[in-house]
Design a protein around this nucleic acid. Structure first.
Lengths: 147, 147
DNA sequence: TATTGTTATACTCTATAACTATA
DNA sequence: TATAGTTATAGAGTATAACAATA
């Protein structure tokens, strides 16, 4: 097995472990990855019509209906009428939803600190650059395959 | 945002792009990620009882029934009686299943080459070591959360 | 008794298609 | 006519629980 293949194996190992870590962390606060993405967007963008969420998530509007149904049932968001368009529903964080969403933001910081603890600033920068290169290359492959 | 947070963002960007790349590559040969894991195991281990697949995939036996149903319907595997245990079904690659599975192995090599093209052997080794460190740290977090 | 795999049931994420209400 | 969101339907992945056949 080549060095490149060994390195790719470590990338895949990292992605698998990260997915497990995030999924279990989210489950502890009653969220799934897909629903957490919605909360993440609502923190960044404020109350949003579902069609905007669908575009940002690159998912069908029907899918957003389901995600918001679940978040609403569990008390994280409400659907408010849009004052400027009576067709639209503005998805809005409840106080509890905002609390949990703020926790997601804090959790990301904590994870970053744990992941890079004890490494020099230069080393962290260097690793970040390498990861950026790899990410850009994979994104190019995805774009090529799609286009 | 700290350097560690920027680096974590690149990790997440990489994982997202990789997932998209692999999912679309697999779809082109009629596979999903979960089903491809089964083929991957069958190439490595040879014909296997479903319970062995369930353990290796860390998934319930019921789930394997569904995955093998799909693979069987699409002609990638067959269920053969186990000569040594009449309760068990030995999941076995068909010739076409083996062909596709060999393609998965080759595809991994190709992806590794594309990802690290133009980088010196030392650089690839260094990136691999960094990734190994990060993967080990995330795995430790997962184990801690589970235990 | 324990193990292998299945049927029954359910939940989440995802998609397409047809439809309503509004723009 | 076009857009926002829904109902209807479907498929994939996952789970638990109850059960049959076999060890």
């Amino acid at each position: 097995m080549s060095a490149a293949e060994r390195a790719l194996d470590q990338v895949l190992r990292l992605t698998l472990a990260l997915e497990q870590d995030m999924t279990s962390s989210l489950a502890r606060v009653g969220l799934t990855p897909a629903r957490s993405h919605v909360l993440w967007l609502l923190v960044a963008e404020g109350p949003s019509p579902q069609v905007a969420l669908a575009r940002a998530l690159d998912v069908t509007p029907r899918n957003v209906t389901g995600l918001v149904d679940g978040l609403e049932r569990d008390g994280f968001v409400t659907r408010e009428p849009d004052p400027s368009d009576r067709r639209a529903q503005r998805v809005t964080l409840t106080p509890r939803g905002r609390e949990v969403a703020d926790g997601l933001v804090a959790g990301r910081s904590t994870l970053a600190a744990q992941l890079f603890a004890g490494l020099s600033a230069e080393r962290v920068e260097s690793i970040g650059s390498d990861l950026e290169l790899l990410a850009a290359r994979v994104e190019a492959l995805v774009a090529e395959a799609a286009g």
